[in-house]
Amino acid sequence: MTRRLFGIGNPDRGDDAAGIAVAQAVVGWESEVRNTGSPDMIESWFPYDEVVIVDAMSSGAPPGQVHVFDGRRDVIPSGAFTSTHSFGPAEIVALAGVLDRMPSTLTLYGIEIGHTEFGEPMSAAVQSAVTALAEELRRA
């Protein structure tokens, strides 16, 4: 069983660093850090059985709340994830589905964020969520 974790975010923009922070903290996973989601992630995950994506999310829930989506089953809310060129996790997963390039399991974790100011550290609530999710993935 091969598995790969993608952490997406901007390390210089406060809570937006959450996905990257999880990828850097998690142990036991082959992980990849990206500043932005990109469709070529499909090429990168294709040989893997289990894929996890962690990204910042803004749905109006309290900062630090973690949303979990089954990429093969759930409808992923496009607008709640930040993305460039309108190609965020929701679109990438949808494209993989159309191209029949889904891994055996694909889980998307969306960490609810608060502030995204340049140069600011992550908030305590988001940092706490990062630590807990990294530990959960380590034990998975």
Binding site: P39, D40, E43, L95
Partner: peptide, 22 residues
């Protein structure tokens, strides 16, 4: 409207794009 809908009819265009981008 987007590459996702296009991929259904033109999968080769999109898979070539993914490989080039990689």
């Amino acid at each position: 409207p987007s590459a996702i809908e296009m991929a259904g009819d033109f999968p080769d265009i999109v898979t070539n794009a993914l490989r080039l981008k990689k």
